[in-house]
Structure formats: structure tokens, C-alpha cells
Amino acid sequence: MNPFAYERASNAAGAVAAVAGHPGAAFLGGGTNLVDHMRLGVASPDLLVDITKLPFDRVEELPSGGVRIGAGVRNSDLAADQLIRSRYPMLSQALLSGASGQLRNLATTGGNLLQRTRCVYFQDVTTPCNKREPGTGCSAIGGYTRYHAILGASEHCVAVHPSDMAVAMVALDATVVVLGRLGERRVKLVEFHRLPGDDPWQDTVLGHGELIVAVELPALPFATRSAYRKVRDRASFAFALVSVAAALDVEGGTVRDARVALGGVAHKPWRATQAEAALRGAPATAESFRRAADAELAAARPLDGNAYKIPMVRNTMVAVLRDLSAEATP
């Protein structure tokens, strides 16, 4: 591992100034992804600015009925938070399906959003990878693609975003609050992560030195009926092959509104807007749910090793929506 200097930030503006003014600097949160990358040689910052003592460790109710989550709130604390459990159960479920108990105790909300792909080629510094070393090529294309993207990929990168939490948050229309040298800005989470395009090394729209300070969830009363389902190779402590976060508003057998997002399928947590549009006003039946899934999957482009994800997404989405609509009709 390359040598690095370490500073513990005592205020957010100071942390931003320290990283923004130093090209090789990085923020250090829970460290569960960054420390590993430094050991693997995937990342080699020469200055770490520790932000874990900043006062961003609260989950607060907003006057609008929404919730503001500090960027430093640990994944375990967010999953266990009473507001989140009762109002946004899909978010608790998504968090609890990620990593392990001891990792969730370390990992933070901001860090979870910024974790990087688990593409095996990205993490193996002996192989070409456009995300890790721009212009070297993509080893996954034509290689082992079982875990890779079926939506929104490019000829330069087919990696998927690994977060569970972000999938639920993107379905919930979350906003990321970001502090930079010029002050705060707000970015919709759905626009926060990027598709790979021609520059897959850019995971998000953050500039160097910009710091996530909070994530805000708007009020969504029907999210009390929401769920996150994750399909993976083993029952626990594994990344998603595919996942579905959904909330359903059903009245008199008709879908009034729906929120659907997918994980494990794209370079970003994938908001399933086509599926949502197909669901609105449709009868709450398995046939409608299948049609909604197919509407979203019409754009899917499988690779050699991951065509299985198309029926897996369809089946998982139908199952989640069916379970949610069954809850609606006692």
C-alpha cells in the first residue's frame, strides 16, 4: 500500500477544503470499501481526511413529513431506525440484506452510495479495466459476465453498482445533499450515479472534494407497503444477482401508483420508470405485473453470461408486486 497522510476533520467545510485542495486526497468514512481498495492497489490516495467525527450521524424527521439521513449514519443504525422501519420498510430490508452485521456497523450512508463495483476485473489490478485505468479496455466483455449489466451498459464498461440501500433509496425518490467549496447543492439520487458511456471511471456526478452530508427521503405514505427482494448465490452475505425494490398503492383492485427500482442490472441503481408507467391505472394482477416487467426489460441487452437475469428480474418483480398487492386486499 502506498504511504498516506491522515487528518481527522473537525468540521465539514474544513474537510471539503482539505480534499478539494489536494488532488490525491480522499474522504475516509467507514472504510469498508476504500481500505480494501487501497490494499488491492485499486485506489492509492496520499491523504485521507477522516469524516467520521463530523456531526452527520442523525436521522431526523423533516417538517414536510420526509426524513433526513446524515451521511455518517451507519448502515446498521439506519436499518434499525424506527422511522425507517415503519415508513420505508423497503429501505430497512435493503440495508439488512447487504454485507454482514459487523460490516453494517462500520459502513456509512454516504459511503454506501459511493461504494464501487465488485466487477472481478475492476478489483484485479493485473487485468485491463476502463473504470480503473481509463483506455485500457474492458476485460469483462468477452470474459466472465455472469454478474454484469443487462441495462444501460456501454462498449467500454458492463459493471453493475453493488449497493442494495441505493436501490431502495432511488425508488423512494431520494435527494443527495452535497457540500462543495461553493456551498451546498442537491442532486436527485436517480441522477447521482452515472451510466458508463465513454467515461466509466466516473461513477457519480460528484466533483473532487465534494462531500455527501445527507440523504433526504420525501414523504411517501404508500411506502409503508413496500418491499425489497434480493436474489443471490447464497442466502446471506452476498451481492445481488438481481434485486427489486417496490412500493405499491392499490385501491379497489387498481394500481394507483407504484415505485419500482432494480439492483444488479446496471451501472447505477435502476429506477424502473417504464414499469411504473405500465402499472399506473392497471388492474393489480399478475398479468399486469408481468407486462410492467416486460416494459422495463424491453431495453435489456444481455451479455454471453447473464441472459438469466432477464427472466430473474421479471419473476422477482412479479413476485414482489404480487406480495404487495396481496397485503392490500385482506
Binding site: L28, G31, T32, D50, T52, G101, Q102, L103, N105, L106
Partner: peptide
């Protein structure tokens, strides 16, 4: 670690 279970391999001592 400060009362909660944590992996120590993914933490820097200095932090």
C-alpha cells in the same frame, strides 16, 4: 469496537 462488533481488517488503526 466501542461496544459494537466490527471487522478490524478494514479499519486503519490511526482512524
Amino acid at each position: 469496537l466501542d461496544g459494537r462488533r466490527a471487522t478490524t481488517c478494514l479499519a486503519f488503526a490511526v482512524a
